[in-house]
């Protein structure tokens, strides 16, 4: 019975992860090749993808490893680059409640893509929600490590024109965003998120816009709490 439930959750979760299979294997390969070109052996990208599991930070980490030894600097930079995870955590507090041990792995693997799927997919009633989310996270984790390993090991051999395939990630997020836009009466919130982020991207630039975006989004959503609740944009 338990086995059947787990299989059902896997079959339900896998299709949602297929775009990420394409994206992560490719990005992972790119990451592995990049590490290879910097002179790191394959164990580095494999180990880092297993333990860090945060794509953009792993690219930054490569540069940190080439510089001088500044552990505190590395920690602070990580907190800044990955600060957006705080948002994900806050919005998954309810969903990850009451999941026992699964919760620890789900939080460990709360990367952008796992978050985007687990926070938005309406899991069918007959499917175990905990196992569904674990499989989404686990498959993504697996794809990412697999890609990094391929890139790190065969880095210098792979040759075909994959330029532009990284767009698969953008396409995934846009599709999920459009789904949410059409499904829910939350357009105001979507516009606030887009508006504040674009504004701070223009002002602060690509390297520094995440923290100001988060602060701006928090401020605007806090100021507009009452009007948003009144308009029924949220259930509270």
């Amino acid at each position: 019975m338990e086995k059947h439930r787990i299989c059902a959750a896997f079959s339900a979760a896998f299709p949602y992860t297929t775009p990420i299979l394409a994206g992560f294997v490719f990005l992972g390969i790119a990451y592995g090749i990049y590490m290879n070109s910097l002179g790191f052996s394959a164990i580095y990208p494999i180990l880092m993808s297993l333990t860090i599991f945060a794509g953009s930070m792993e690219f930054v980490a490569a540069n940190l490893l080439l510089g001088s030894f500044q552990p505190m600097n590395a920690l602070l930079l990580t907190l800044m680059v990955n600060g957006r995870h705080l948002f994900y955590g806050l919005s998954m507090l309810e969903k990850y409640k009451r999941l026992g041990k699964k919760k620890h792995y789900l939080i460990f693997g709360l990367c952008d893509e796992s978050y985007a799927i687990n926070s938005t997919v309406k899991i069918p009633d007959h499917v175990d929600k905990g196992w569904f989310m674990v499989f989404v996270t686990l498959l993504n984790h697996l794809y990412w490590v697999l890609g990094s390993a391929i890139g790190g090991i065969f880095g210098s051999i792979i040759q075909f024109n994959t330029e532009g395939i990284e767009f698969v990630m953008t396409a995934l997020f846009v599709v999920i965003f459009v789904d949410q836009w059409m499904k829910e009466k939350k357009q105001e919130i979507a516009i606030i998120g887009l508006g504040v982020s674009i504004f701070s991207l223009i002002i602060f630039g690509g390297q520094n816009f995440i923290l100001p975006s988060m602060a701006g989004i928090l401020i605007v959503l806090t100021v507009l709490k009452r009007p948003l609740e009144k308009r029924g944009a949220i259930s509270a």
């Binding site: 957006r84 948002f87 994900y88 806050l90 919005s91 998954m92 507090l93 309810e94 952008d112 978050y115 985007a116 926070s119 938005t120 953008t170 997020f173 846009v174 999920i176 965003f177 949410q180 829910e184 939350k186 919130i189 979507a190 606030i192 998120g193 887009l194 504040v196 982020s197 674009i198 991207l201 995440i210 975006s213 988060m214 989004i217 928090l218 959503l221 948003l228 944009a233 949220i234 259930s235 509270a236």
Partner: peptide, 15 residues
């Protein structure tokens, strides 16, 4: 925040 941030964070992710 948990409720409204999920969509706002998705928007941030798109940007």
């Amino acid at each position: 925040l948990g409720e409204v941030l999920s969509l706002a964070a998705l928007a941030l992710l798109v940007v």
